[in-house]
Design a protein around this nucleic acid. Structure first.
Length: 296
DNA sequence: GCCCAGGGGTAGT
DNA sequence: ACTACCCATGGG
């Protein structure tokens, strides 16, 4: 077990970053964020410009834990510049769109896009189809807990690393059904069987954003929404613009843009270039917190 | 473009 | 306790 203090850059908010919906398996309990990145279990708590970190290992991604965590948490993104660019852009918008956009930037300050694993993102966003966040977490955790060999102990608690493709290939349709994955079962089963190795996901890094989307969408269960989440959160394609019901609502309200997921996505990627992904996350978070839960 | 696909969380009663 | 409604969608 390792304990240390991680110094954060200007503009970083752990609660917003882990709680905005880009990641599913992190959970906040007793004021600590608890989760697993690759094979390392972690507990984190931010206090001002420092994060208290408790980890099961001093290595992550085969690197020094501190170096790897800075990468994972998106410290490489020039967030000050990104927000400046987005503010400049927002000032060219019609009055309402400008006001709402600027407020969403203000309230989401410190949100950073995580560097998550593309294969894990693919599986979890297929699970996210027509599903809510607590259920996505439950299903993803249940899938991980099938493999006892993946268990990691930290501070008296048990965590499970996300399984790799070799492990998931061994699962039968019946075993998957026990996880109550419902209509997502055949999509996941076919994904596990049809992909030869996780090299497939590694190789996609070389391709353009459009080519990545096209390649991912060849698999059943992956449409524009799921594919754009995988590219944004798994490949750091910061111009990806995932479109769900909330973003459709926002785009209609602010820009009077309606239509298919594809159409709205292409509008966002063009109009909010090159940081459409950050703009999407900030707007999404603001709109959900404002209108998402009925009672104020 | 329309409709359906399981199941669980959650607000309202 | 019970019900109705919702859910970061995709496929036929």
């Amino acid at each position: 077990m390792v304990k240390y203090e991680l110094r954060v850059p200007e503009l970083f908010d752990l609660d917003i970053t882990l709680g905005c919906g880009q990641t599913f398996r992190w959970i906040k309990e007793d004021n600590w964020w608890k989760g697993v990145v690759k094979d390392t279990a972690l507990m984190m708590k931010q206090q001002g410009r420092e994060i208290r970190v408790i980890a099961s290992s001093d290595k992550l991604f085969g690197k020094d834990l501190d170096v790897a965590l800075r990468y994972y948490l998106g410290f490489d993104d020039p967030l000050v510049d990104i927000l400046t660019e987005l503010e400049k852009l927002a000032k060219t918008f019609p009055e309402t769109a400008k006001r709402i956009s600027l407020r969403s930037f203000e309230e989401g300050k410190g949100l950073r896009i995580l560097r998550q694993d593309p294969f894990e993102m693919t599986v979890e966003y297929i699970i996210s189809t027509r599903n809510n966040i607590p259920s996505i977490r439950k299903m993803s955790d249940a899938l991980s807990a099938l493999f006892h060999e993946n268990h990691i102990e930290l501070n008296g608690e048990v965590f499970f690393a996300f399984p790799d493709l070799i492990q998931l290939k061994k699962l039968s349709v019946e075993k998957l059904k026990e996880l109550k994955l419902a209509f997502r079962t055949p999509w996941l089963y076919e994904l596990f069987q049809n992909i030869d190795s996780e090299e497939f996901f590694h190789d996609l890094r070389k391709l353009s954003l459009d080519e990545k989307l096209e390649s991912l969408m060849k698999h059943k269960g992956i449409g524009f929404k799921v594919a754009s989440c995988v590219t944004l959160f798994g490949y750091t394609e910061l111009n990806s613009f995932p479109v769900d019901v909330w973003i459709k609502r926002v785009m209609k309200d602010l820009f009077n843009i309606e239509g298919s997921t594809k159409k709205v996505m292409e509008y966002g990627m063009k109009e909010f270039y090159p940081y459409a992904g950050y703009y999407q996350e900030l707007l999404f978070r603001y709109y959900r917190s404002k209108f998402g839960r009925r009672k104020i």
